[in-house]
Design a protein around this nucleic acid. Structure first.
Lengths: 133, 133
DNA sequence: CATATTCCTAGTAAAGTAGTAGGAATAATA
DNA sequence: TATTATTCCTACTACTTTACTAGGAATATG
């Protein structure tokens, strides 16, 4: 279970926004400084979060971002999925296994992989940004 | 949670050996054909398993591999660790988080990551090759 | 001596990762 | 109106990892 920097930075940014006064918008610069994230990189990440409808943006001076959903409506799982692709579907837990093995024979191994996936998903689906704030 | 092909192939090879008659040794060629693994790649993997003391080998004609431990003494976790490095220590779950973030502030996020790690570890540590066979 | 095997090292092509660079669009402000 | 602060968007790049392949030395068996 390894997260990419993208999804970690995304979570950190969302958490920061959730903690901020939702009245005004917050710039990438501000978030980047607070959470210690490379600003230009965070710019990309915020853009993706915007496209994913997790944040709202306003351009221009005094512009920036704010959450587009209530923090308790954003699970860690969906954010991680947005950046790292599928969270842990069986195919991702076990890509080569699926592609190359006569599965009938090794379905016990498969069962364990699925169990892992389910446990990870369970935790990340049920934990929200609000829980972290 | 994504396994590399190496650790999946290693597990498949060990499972195959565990199911085989332990009296004689089994060649890479045989395992590779049975489990549909690129033979030269499997060669490397078997070598690593040998260095990790999971299998025993005999060179030359009629040579090959056999398990060096009882199948119920080999957990999936240790095999995966051998190939994919740390299974899911907190640092790996959350590399950038650790390196770049004032952790004090985001220790709730950290707690979730740890919870995921622990769950994954729990399953993989307690499941052995014997359970899969 | 031929053959079947493990042992070991090096190389390689493709993909993924973590960024950087730079400029267009837009909104507030001086 | 000009400047400035911001988002928006695309392209690029350096690095690492991944999944192999190649080839030959060592060694045991027939």
């Amino acid at each position: 279970m390894k997260l990419t920097s993208r999804s970690e930075y995304a979570l950190l940014a969302l958490v920061f926004l959730a903690r901020s006064d939702s009245a005004h918008h917050i710039s990438v610069e501000t978030i980047a400084r607070a959470q210690n994230i490379p600003p230009k990189f965070l710019e990309q990440i915020m853009l993706a979060l915007k496209h994913g409808k997790y944040v709202h943006s306003v351009k221009g001076q005094r512009g920036g971002y704010r959450l587009a959903k209530a923090p308790d409506k954003i699970s860690l799982a969906e954010v991680i999925r947005l950046f790292d692709g599928a969270l842990a579907p069986t195919e991702s837990v076990s890509k080569y296994f699926y592609e190359t093995t006569p599965i009938e024979k090794e379905k016990n191994l498969l069962r364990v992989f699925r169990q892992v996936r389910d446990q990870v998903a369970e935790i990340l689906e049920t934990t929200t940004i609000a829980d972290v704030v």
